[in-house]
Structures are given as C-alpha cells and as structure tokens.
C-alpha cells in the first residue's frame, strides 16, 4: 500500500514537472469587457499571425473557454517561451438578459446569451485550478476596487498561481493606471492598450518574469 502511494506521489511530481515545462497554461482572467480577448488577439496576431476570438462592445461576447495552443514568444535577449493561451469568459456576479436588449437583440437572443454567459462564468471559475500562470486584465478606466477583481486575485493567491496584472485601455483619456497600482501594490502592474498596441513590448518582456 505504502509503495503504491509513494509511486503515485513520484508520478504526480514528474507529471507536474513535465506539464509545466511542456504545456504551460497562461490564462486571461478579468471582469466583463476589460479587453481579455483583445489582448489574446494581440498576442496571437503578433506571434502566430491569426486572431483568437471575436471582440465586441456587447458584454459577455466570450462565453466559453478558448485555447490557442503552442504560442511561442521571444524576448529582446533571444529567450523564448511557449504556452497554451487560455481566454476565459469575463467574471460577473450578475447577469440580466434585459441588459442585452439595449444592444438591439431580440428577447429570445438576449435570454440565450444570458444563459450562456452564466455557464461561461461558472466554467471560468472552474478553470482556475488548471492554470499555471494568469494575466488579470483590468479596464484602467474603471475603479479597480471591484469585488470581482479582488475575488479573482484572492483565488489566484490562494492557489499560488503567478499573476501579472494588466491595466488595459491606457490609450483612453479616463485611464488611471496608478489607481490599479495603488489598489494592488503586491503585484506587478503593466499598462497596455491591447487595441492600439501601446506598451506591448514591455508587456512581452514582463511575461518572461512571470512565466518561469
């Protein structure tokens, strides 16, 4: 019995080592409409030449987990890292189908989208356990002290998952990156514009510090 347990333990340790080296899962987490898919698209276009998902101003555009395998990026010093990029639905505590009606959807479409969105949030939370490293994407034009942000970061900390906080939309006038830095002083915060590519080189360099 003891030998079997020791064997299982060694197997688990070896699996973890190889899993981390070969298939690092880099997750994109954050509240709804913070720009997770825009950042995923920017990374994918820059390094593999194709987009990952559809971007929309309508909330909950991403309603299921999307994975782009074997994305390889290179640093200025010639180092390279490869990872599986995992784009997740935005985390929310409320979903009201009537909100979608404002975006010219039919009642039927809005209800369907709301149902899928609730499932997406559940799926995103369940996937937290599978991540090796996470980019928490926040909208830098919004108040960072939202409970969704705190819950995501708290759960990642509890699981000892390395985190890089991204303050997205720094190209906008209302952007306040300092508010994010002040709210989460224990994390490295990088300001970018996933849409316009502002500061994206610094972001790639910081990825090398987080993914080890």
């Amino acid at each position: 019995m003891m030998i079997i347990r020791i064997g299982d333990f060694i197997k688990r340790v070896l699996n973890n080592i190889f899993k981390q080296k070969k298939n690092i899962k880099l997750g994109l987490y954050g509240p709804v409409n913070s720009g997770k898919t825009s950042l995923a698209n920017k990374i994918c276009v820059d390094w593999i030449g194709e987009e990952m998902g559809i971007v929309s101003s309508i909330p909950h555009e991403t309603r299921e987990i999307k994975i782009k395998e074997k994305v390889e990026i290179k640093s200025k010093k010639g180092k390279s890292i490869s990872f599986n990029l995992v784009d997740t639905p935005g985390i929310a505590t409320r979903i009201d189908y009537e909100d979608f009606l404002k975006h010219r959807m039919s009642v039927k479409e809005a209800k369907k989208r709301a149902k899928e969105a609730t499932k997406g949030v559940i799926e995103a939370i369940k996937w937290l356990d599978n991540m090796d490293c996470v980019l928490v994407v926040l909208d830098s034009t919004k108040n960072p002290y939202s409970q969704v942000n705190l819950t995501i970061l708290g759960n990642l900390q509890a699981r000892n998952i390395p985190v890089l906080v991204i303050g997205n939309k720094v190209d906008l006038k209302k952007s306040n990156l300092k508010a994010i830095e002040d709210a989460f002083p224990q994390y490295e915060v990088i300001g970018v514009s996933a849409l316009n590519g502002n500061n994206i080189e610094e972001f790639y360099e910081s990825l090398f510090r987080v993914i080890k």
Partner: peptide, 28 residues
C-alpha cells in the same frame, strides 16, 4: 468570506440566475 467561498458564491449565484433573480452584488 474566504476567497474560495467568494468564488463558490459566484458560481452558485450563476447557477441560480433566472428571469426574477439576476444575481448579486457583493463586497468584502
């Protein structure tokens, strides 16, 4: 609440969303 409890609360809330119950707002 512990962070895992907060996440579980959000999960359970999403499972319970209906036309009349649209979710929660929470703050710790």
């Amino acid at each position: 609440l512990r962070s895992n409890e907060e996440a579980a609360l959000i999960e359970r809330t999403m499972e319970n969303v209906t036309k009349s119950f649209k979710g929660i707002e929470l703050c710790t």
